[in-house]
């Protein structure tokens, strides 16, 4: 267990910080990204806004997803994991403020969760291809398509798919940006890893040739 904890220091640090922020009353309002804040304050808020949440329920599922995806990605390779986090942390609030005019403040780990989801799916698909685990490729691919479909639904319907969206504005752009960044970094990493693309090509060819 201790070994496991040692393997995911970034994930745990952010998770603990998020919980602390939630437990400190009134602190969250300083951290969320506000479009009307001074520029310098906004620069800090680009990073801090992800640790703030609106309510306990908002926090719980964001955090569960973050720790789960963080464990998969950070254990595999902490460098692309950190890059994906940093890039999406900056990009998500900027995209939200630019494209979602109805949102003038942003909070939550969900955008980062989606980035890590994209990264994790690429890793798992890559591993499955290398292991010629085709049902696994299908399953992870299906989940990725499902996630993109869910974001598409949120975008088109202006609400969420699995829960009631009355009374709030869904902001699918945050999830979309996260998913794109996470997937792109994952693909960039696996494509640079030797013997890619040979490993993939060999795996596919070996499957086509009957034993």
């Amino acid at each position: 267990m201790y070994q496991f904890i040692k393997e995911i220091p970034i994930t745990l640090t952010i998770a603990v910080a998020t919980v602390i922020v939630f437990l400190a009353p009134g602190f969250e309002s300083l951290l969320d990204f506000q479009t009307n804040s001074p520029v310098l304050h906004q620069l800090a808020q680009l990073f801090t806004c992800h640790t703030a949440h609106w309510s306990f329920d908002h926090l719980v599922w964001d955090l569960v997803m973050f720790v789960t995806m963080g464990a998969i990605c950070e254990r595999r390779n902490s460098v692309p994991f950190a890059i994906a986090l940093a890039l999406s942390a900056i990009a998500i609030p900027l995209f939200v403020s630019h494209f979602s005019l109805d949102v003038n403040s942003y909070r939550g780990l969900s955008g980062l969760d989606t980035a890590l989801f994209g990264l994790a799916v690429v890793y798992l698909v890559d591993s499955s291809i290398r292991e010629r685990n085709w049902p696994g490729v299908g399953l992870y691919g299906f989940l990725f398509v499902g996630m993109m479909g869910k974001i598409g639904y949120e975008y088109l319907a202006g609400g969420t798919l699995f829960v009631s969206s009355d009374g709030f504005t869904a902001v699918p752009i945050a999830h979309l940006v996260g998913a794109v960044i996470g997937t792109a970094i994952g693909l960039f990493e696996v494509m640079r890893m030797p013997p890619f693309p040979f490993a993939w090509r060999n795996a596919i060819q070996q499957t086509r040739v009957p034993g």
Binding site: W54, V60, W61, V96, R107, V163, G167, V171, A174, H175
Partner: peptide, 16 residues
Amino acid sequence: SSSSSSGGGGGGAIDP
């Protein structure tokens, strides 16, 4: 379920 504050913004939470 989760309680929400429609007085604030957010990127849409992760649903269960």
